[in-house]
Structures are given as structure tokens and as C-alpha cells.
Design a protein around this nucleic acid. Structure first.
Length: 644
RNA sequence: GCUGACGUAGCUCAAUUGGCAGAGCAGCUGAUUUGUAAUCAGCAGGUUGUGAGUUCGAUUCUCACCGUCAGCUCCA
């Protein structure tokens, strides 16, 4: 008999081979109706699966995240069912659930058209209405080869299965698929779904193998969730930094230098404000340096980049030797080590923190380039800390506070990930023990939740990654704190200790924004282009109502500029409505309207971005004081425009 | 890099089966003097991404190159 332990501690004894459904039935009638799948010892099984092992037993309903993956996986089968009906020639590949939905790969001679996809979606609705049960069957290898004789991709998969693995199939109506499961009980469970787009995908991700046609889709239990998801996709499109970058006139790209942004005078203000902000925050405890962009290959040989990273470096041709023997730097670290090594360092100087905003170049694959988020030329707020091993814990804590405080300025929250030793690594276990303990202790001391990513560390040391979530709930990996024991060896870094002997420092790599380029892309999307006042390229637009008020408006504009405000006069002879519309579309935070009444009273009518007709009559001086204060405190907009 | 789609005025987009390349916005000129999201009129704007080819004729068809976008990791 198998013994199953329920979450409340009670147990059930059942004969091996009993379907999970029968166990759920003993718990409760309502639960049985709500059940989607079960978990036995952490493995998700569907209700029809015969139980083989005992152990902890849980029932998943719609409320559990696990059952959404089950639904989506069933959605993939329903998609394949529909595709097979309309295109019997399609060979079936894989169809898993993914983070935001599911996909299915098909081998077809001609790619699917958007019309095909619409037809598939309509056909899926029929399959759902027909309410086919998902029937699991366990078969032997010979039988499996027979059943999938027309599906070469499946036969290949069967051949890869280990001798002791259970081979199972799932059938829903006319469609049978080799599948481990689990699945929802029948096709009618899929109610709210949407086919999203198609794309080519190599069979098993290998570019040497045939290209399949992948159909991406998503599904949810509730209509609201599906609608919300589709809305977020639309909202993300509306906020796309590549679109806003153009309409707000911030940056552009040109064929003459793919992957490298041209920053307009407006975008450059944002770029400079950000760097200035970082510079200001780093003034006290960091040492800003500048190092060359171009290096002989000898540096990259020392660092190891020449062997491992050359593909991604821009190499420079040497006229005399006819060789590609130098390169633009793709990272700052080696140049920082050179500068550090140029002098003897006392233990009293440590930790020593070098920071740089130097330009970096990485020769990314053309297909990888995407707006500002994946570029070939960029700047990081890059820091390398040289310190004694005993200083790791307080230093990590210091850096964490620094990074989290930075994100707070933008209303961004970060999730922390702690990545520990990977299988391939340098250094002995004792070193890794010390490093991981120091990092984890610092993490714990912040009191913040963090996720453990065992084995995900760099080969040279463990790290903490900062995943930042924007106003649409999308995660971006930005900051990082990485311990590095390998670089000090390679570069023979030293410091002189109290007893006058040479010692090896440890290096910490720290980035906060990731790159300014990518960070600005995230800010554009996060704020939907409506930047806080301190970052806005244009902070105030002054609008005289009629031409004869232009001189007064000009005086007001001058006064604002004298106070350091980025104010512009718009005295064009277009209507006020027209000029206001343009100011709103350019997301200028404040418009100061000057009419006859205001001119006489020394006031302005302030219109705040996104607040419509609501206006406020204030004195010019009071308004200037207010804007200057908002800039000084780097105040966030009253409400960051939420999705909607 | 690979697969697919796409590339037309500064921007967003049109252009039957191959037959003189258009519109809105932006720009310029003029009129209008405006009270909180588009005043009116006129003008100008292009070797249709680049280069070959097919054709009497190519934005349209073919090929190559450049670029953009979606993917190429989430395993029956």
C-alpha cells in the first residue's frame, strides 16, 4: 500500500495504481470538482494518473500557480489538435507551457500565415466545445514507435528516452501526443486563451537542425486575467522606448552605426542628468577614473578575454604588423586593474573603489540588437572595489544600500537573487565557503527577501543580482555585486598588510544601472515618457496667450532659466490650444500660461502634465521655488502613470 | 550569425493584375491674436534602403548586400 500525507498531516492509504482522482474524492466532493491536478512529493500529476509512490500529497485548484501551467500545457495540445485537423501534413514537435503562456512547434513546408493562425484559433474553440477528455495511456517502446510512425520528430524523442522511463501518451479526441503530462481532465477547461504570434524556432534549439514554425499563445483561468495580460501587451507597445524615443525626440539609430544610439539634445539631457546623479552619489566614497578605450591584445590575453570573448570585441587592424592585434574595450575591469597595479597600496587604503563612465563596445550579433536595451556601444556606472577578504561583509552591505537607494529614486523596486558556486569554477571550496557566507550574511542583514540561485554564480565568484520591476511588472536584471577571486590572481594585484608583507586583495564588480542606455530605456517605459521634473529635457514651457504678451512671457522664461530651470518660451502665433496640445504630447511637466490677468498680477496659470484643464494661479517666484525644490529633491511625479 | 516578415517625404501610412509615386501630421510663407489637447490658406518636400538583373516600362518580379522587427533558452 502507498501512504499519502496531506498538507493537514492526515494520511490516506491506497493501492498502487489507484488514480489520483480517487484519492481526491476521499478528501471532499467540492475539492474533487475544483481539482485540476495533484502533487506527489513535489511532482505534478493529473487526476487520471495511477499513483506509483507515496509521500506528501497536495491538490492543486485554479488558485495554485502550478495548475495554470497544466492548463497551458493542455492548451498546447488543443492547439496541436486544431492544427492537425486543418493541416494534416504538420509534423508535431514540442508544446510546453512557458512563463506567460505556451507554444507548440510544427514542422511544415510553408510558414503559417496570420490567416492560418486565425483559423487555428477558431478550430481550437471547436475542439474545446467538443469536450474531449485527456486520456493518458502508458505504452511500451515498440508500441510508441508504431503510433508515431508518421511523426519523425516524436520518433527521435522516443529514441532519446532512457530505458527505464515510462512512455506515456495523451489523447484528446482525434489527437494523440507523446507526453509526460499532466493535463486538465478535458478540453473544455480551456476557456480564455489567445494565439499571439508565430516565429521560427530550430528543432531543439539547434541551428543545424530544421526550422520549425512555433505558435505562441497564452491562456488563463479567468477572462479578467487574459484581458489584463493582453492589455499589458498593448500598454507595453504604447510605452515602447523605441517609439517614445522617436516621438519625444530623445535618440535615434542610423544604418551608419547599427546598435549605437545618436542622442538628441533632449535625450542627452536625460543621459547627463543620470550620470551627474550617480556622480553626485559617488562623490564621497568612490574614486572616479578614466581609462583608454583602445588596448593591445596583451591586456586581453592577461584578462582571458582574448580567448573567451574575442568574438564580441571590435578588433583594430595594425598597419605595420597587418594583424588585428588591438581592440576597443568591451569591459572596464582590466583597465581598472592596470591603474590599481601602477602603485603600491597599503591595507589602510582599502577598500578602494574605482568608478568609471567610460564608453564600452561589444560586437553583438546583428540579430541580438534591439533599441537601447541591446546595443553595441554603451556606458556603465561601473565600479571595482579592491578590498581585503575580511572586509567583504560590510562592503557588500554598503554597496547594497547604495544600489537599492538608487532604484528608490525612480520608484523602482528590486528583487534580489543570490547566485552561488557553479560547477565549473576557480578557487578552492574553502574560498567559496567564505565568499558565499559573507555575501549571504550581508543579504540577510538587509532583511529583504531573496531568491537562491544555486550554481548560477560567475566562475570567479558568487554574486547578488538585482532584478528591477517596472510599473508594468516586467523584470529587468540591472545591478550586480560580484565577488572575484580570479582577476586578482591573473593581474597579480597586491596590497601591503600591517606586517609589511604582500597580500592578494579581492575584487568586487558592481554595476547599478547595468548600462545607462538600457536604464534609460527602462525609465522611458516605466514612466511612459512622463519623466520626473529633474530628468525632463524640458521642465517648463511658457505660453503667452497673445503676441503682445510675448515680452512679459520672455521675461518670465529668463527668470526661470536664471534659477536653473530648463524653461522654453513658445510664443508662436498658433492658438493656445494648439500649443498646449503639443506640450502635452511632448510630456512637458509644466506649462505656464501668461494672459493679460497674469501679466498684470505677476502670476502665471500653471497647467500640470496630464491634469487636463485643472490650473493653478501662482506667483512666478513661488512657482520657481517649487520647481527648483522638486528638482533638488528629485521628486517623483505624483503618480507614476500606472498601466491604464 | 540563422529563420521569417518588413524597408515609400522628417513622422505615420496609401499606391488595382508591372503603366506619370499620394495623403495626414511636421516644415516653410502669409493671414489670424487666440484663456487650457489640432485656426485657415498657399508652398515646398522623393533616384521608393543600396546595387545588379528581367522587361518597352519596376515601389511592384528575381538575386545579392545593408538595416529594422519577431523569434532562435523555458524540452515528449
Amino acid at each position: 500500500m502507498l501512504v499519502l500525507t496531506l498538507p493537514d498531516g492526515s494520511t490516506r492509504e491506497v493501492a498502487p495504481g489507484t488514480p489520483a482522482r480517487d484519492v481526491v474524492a476521499t478528501i471532499g466532493e467540492r475539492l474533487l470538482r475544483a481539482a485540476i491536478a495533484v502533487s506527489v512529493n513535489g511532482e505534478t500529476l493529473d487526476l487520471g494518473t495511477p499513483l506509483r509512490t507515496g509521500g506528501s500529497f497536495r491538490v492543486f485548484t485554479e488558485r495554485d500557480a502550478e495548475s495554470l501551467a497544466v492548463l497551458r500545457h493542455s492548451g498546447a495540445h488543443i492547439l496541436a489538435t486544431a492544427v492537425r485537423r486543418l493541416r494534416p501534413d504538420a509534423r508535431i514537435g514540442f508544446g510546453p507551457a512557458i512563463d506567460d503562456g505556451f507554444y507548440y512547434d510544427f514542422g511544415v513546408d510553408k510558414p503559417f500565415t496570420p490567416e492560418d493562425v486565425e483559423a487555428f484559433e477558431a478550430e481550437m474553440k471547436k475542439v474545446i466545445a467538443e469536450k474531449y477528455p485527456f486520456v493518458r495511456e502508458e505504452i511500451d517502446r515498440a508500441e510508441a514507435n508504431k503510433r508515431f510512425v508518421d511523426d519523425p520528430l516524436k520518433l527521435e524523442r522516443i529514441a532519446d528516452l532512457g530505458a527505464d522511463e515510462v512512455i506515456s501518451t495523451y489523447t484528446d479526441g482525434p489527437f494523440i501526443d507523446l507526453c509526460r503530462g499532466p493535463h486538465v481532465p478535458d478540453t473544455s477547461y480551456l476557456k480564455h486563451f489567445k494565439l499571439l504570434h508565430t516565429a521560427g524556432a530550430y528543432w531543439r534549439g539547434d541551428e543545424k537542425r530544421p526550422m520549425l514554425q512555433r505558435i505562441y499563445a497564452t491562456a488563463f483561468w479567468k477572462k479578467e486575467d487574459l484581458d489584463g495580460y493582453l492589455f499589458r501587451i498593448e500598454e507595453a507597445k504604447r510605452r515602447d522606448h523605441r517609439v517614445l524615443g522617436k516621438t519625444l525626440d530623445l535618440f535615434l539609430f542610423s544604418q551608419v552605426s547599427p546598435g549605437s544610439a545618436f542622442w538628441t539634445e533632449r535625450g542627452t539631457i536625460i543621459y547627463n542628468e543620470l550620470t551627474e546623479f550617480v556622480r553626485e552619489r559617488q562623490r564621497e566614497h568612490f574614486l572616479e577614473i578614466k581609462t583608454p578605450l583602445l588596448y593591445n591584445k596583451s591586456l586581453w590575453e592577461t584578462s582571458g578575454h582574448w580567448g573567451k570573448y574575442r568574438e564580441n570585441m571590435f578588433l583594430i587592424h595594425n598597419k605595420e604588423t597587418e594583424e588585428l592585434d588591438s581592440s576597443l574595450k568591451p569591459m572596464n575591469c582590466p583597465s581598472h586593474y592596470v591603474l590599481y597595479s601602477a602603485k603600491k597600496h597599503s591595507y589602510r587604503e582599502l577598500p578602494k573603489r574605482f568608478v568609471t563612465f567610460d564608453v564600452l563596445h561589444r560586437n553583438e550579433l546583428t540579430g541580438a540588437l534591439s533599441g537601447l536595451t541591446r546595443v553595441r556601444q554603451f556606458q556603465q556606472d561601473d565600479c571595482h572595489v579592491f578590498l581585503m577578504e575580511s572586509q567583504i561583509a560590510p562592503e557588500v552591505q554598503f554597496l547594497m544600500d547604495f544600489i537599492l537607494g538608487y532604484y528608490e529614486t525612480f520608484g523602482l523596486t528590486a528583487k534580489l537573487k543570490f547566485a552561488t558556486r557553479p560547477e565549473v569554477r576557480v578557487g578552492d571550496d574553502a574560498m567559496w565557503d567564505r565568499a558565499e557566507q559573507a555575501l549571504e550574511a550581508a543579504l540577510k542583514s538587509t532583511g529583504k527577501a531573496y531568491e537562491l540561485k544555486a550554481g548560477d554564480g560567475a566562475f570567479y565568484g558568487p554574486k547578488i543580482d538585482f532584478d528591477v520591476e517596472d510599473s508594468l511588472g516586467r523584470a529587468w536584471q540591472l545591478g550586480t555585486i560580484q565577488l572575484d577571486y580570479a582577476a586578482p590572481e591573473r593581474f597579480d594585484l597586491q596590497y601591503t598588510s600591517e606586517d609589511n608583507t604582500a597580500h592578494r586583495p579581492v575584487v568586487i564588480h558592481r554595476a547599478v544601472s547595468g548600462s545607462f542606455e538600457r536604464f534609460i530605456a527602462i525609465l522611458i517605459e516605466h514612466f511612459a515618457g512622463a519623466f520626473p521634473v529633474w530628468l525632463s529635457p524640458e521642465q517648463v514651457r511658457v505660453l503667452p496667450i497673445a503676441d503682445d504678451l510675448a515680452p512679459v512671457a520672455e521675461e518670465i522664461t529668463k527668470k526661470m532659466k536664471a534659477a536653473g530651470i530648463r524653461a522654453h518660451l513658445d510664443a508662436r502665433s498658433d492658438t493656445l490650444n494648439y500649443r498646449i496640445r503639443e506640450g502635452e504630447m511632448m510630456k512637458v511637466p509644466y506649462m505656464a500660461v501668461v494672459g493679460k490677468r497674469e501679466a498684470e498680477a505677476g502670476t502665471i496659470a500653471v497647467r500640470e502634465r496630464g491634469q487636463g484643464k485643472k490650473q493653478e494661479i501662482v506667483s512666478v517666484d513661488a512657482f520657481i521655488a517649487r520647481v527648483v525644490d522638486e528638482v533638488r529633491t528629485r521628486a517623483l511625479p505624483l503618480k507614476v502613470e500606472a498601466a491604464g
